[in-house]
Computed example of a mutant assay.
Amino acid sequence: MSMRGRILGAATVGAVGLAAAGAGVGVTRQRRRIAERAPGDVPAFGSLHSEPITVVADDGTPLHVEVDEPTTPAKSRRRKAKPPLTVIFAHGYALELDCWHFQREHFRTELGHGPVRTVYYDQRSHGRSGRSPMGNATIDQLGRDLLSVIDAVAPEGPVVVVGHSMGGMTVVALAEQHPELFGDRVVGAALISTTAGGLEPSRILFPMVPAWGSAGPVGRAISTLARTHKIVDGFRRVGKDVALVATAQLAFGDDVPGSYVEFVDRMLSSTPFEVVAEFFPGFSSLDKFDSIGVLAKVPTAVICGTDDKLTSIGHSRKLQAGIDGSTLLECHGAGHMVILERHSEVNGELDRLLAATGAEDAR
């Protein structure tokens, strides 16, 4: 290792050590308490999959996409049916499509939805999707990726787009780039635990690298550390107890089962720091509140936990105020991962959104 690498490594060790101290002397004890919260019935996170499809984005990046086709009644198969409603889910920063576990389970098992297709995909550089070319890890590119997914897997029929965190920013980017789609192909939208701007970037980074607590150190260190991302990844593994406690405190509002915390922590820790660093600058420059009015063309549901420490409830209230006719579901006491923590409430709101589009009735 070069002298520069050793210096950066030492700095990272020190930062992780400070993080452990800052998180409290009893990190190990807190880790045990989280593990003890496990219910008798542990969800089979990561088990819901379908045959993968590769969608190639406009810059050549392969995107991993999975489609759950509806079970069409026999009488519908005897006549030529119209294309079903397709609901496309876009996940957040450093997560992957498995984060939609409870929503996917709901749409697979609940009756009364009619012939609804659901689509889940890994954002570029996340999960099973290919790595983004340098410079293309941006919110605007994610909006173009969403269009590529729509064109590839739902070329006909009505579409509802659902985005959580960075996925919600993806939906807003699509609305800015292609307002003509909304009210035509896109008939509904859900923005969950997200914003269109005004973020403090360190809030987003902290659960993945709980070594810094303010925007200043993060902003100065992130690009340098990205060049030694393997060192950082190594110390993220060493500091896994600190990271787990940070995930519990910052991703959730309530004392959720330990399996939920461990599931989210696995997704965060499996995202290479190089990917974390590539997307990071886009959050501070995000400013798309002037574009959200387009979403007034379609039924839009805004959902957020009141104890969201990453994209606070104020962001969702601002989104709802800027989108005429939109609804706001505030999940009291819930955190950023409201799609897991309050999945019944979120699923119920998505049911109401689909009903409001009228697309199911038109089948």
Rank of each mutant, 00 (worst) to 15 (best):
L85I: 03
P43V: 05
D58S: 01
V65F: 07
D98K: 00
G92N: 11
A94R: 14
K82I: 14
R77D: 11
F89H: 10
G60V: 11
G60R: 11
E110S: 15
G92I: 08
E51P: 02
H91Y: 08
T54W: 06
V119R: 04
R117T: 14
A44N: 01
D58C: 00
F45V: 05
G46K: 02
P133Q: 13
T61I: 10
P70Q: 08
R77M: 10
I53T: 14
G92V: 08
F45R: 03
H91R: 03
K80W: 00
W100F: 07
G40P: 03
V55C: 09
T118M: 05
V67D: 05
A94G: 14
V65R: 07
F107R: 06
V55T: 10
V116M: 04
T118V: 10
H64M: 07
D98M: 00
H91W: 05
T118I: 08
T109F: 00
S132W: 04
T109I: 00
E69A: 11
T71S: 14
T72M: 11
V55L: 07
A94C: 15
P52S: 09
T118C: 07
R79M: 03
A74F: 09
T118A: 02
L85H: 13
H101R: 08
R108A: 10
R128W: 01
P73T: 04
L63H: 06
T71E: 14
I88H: 02
A94W: 08
R104C: 12
P73H: 06
P70W: 01
T54P: 01
L85R: 06
R79H: 03
Y120L: 09
A74M: 08
T61R: 05
F107K: 02
A81V: 13
V87S: 02
H106V: 11
L95M: 15
G130Y: 06
P52Q: 09
S47D: 14
R104H: 09
T109D: 07
V67Y: 06
H126D: 13
F89V: 02
G112K: 05
R108Q: 11
R77I: 08
H113P: 04
E69G: 06
E110I: 10
Q123K: 02
R77N: 03
L85E: 13
A81C: 09
G112F: 06
G127A: 08
Q123T: 15
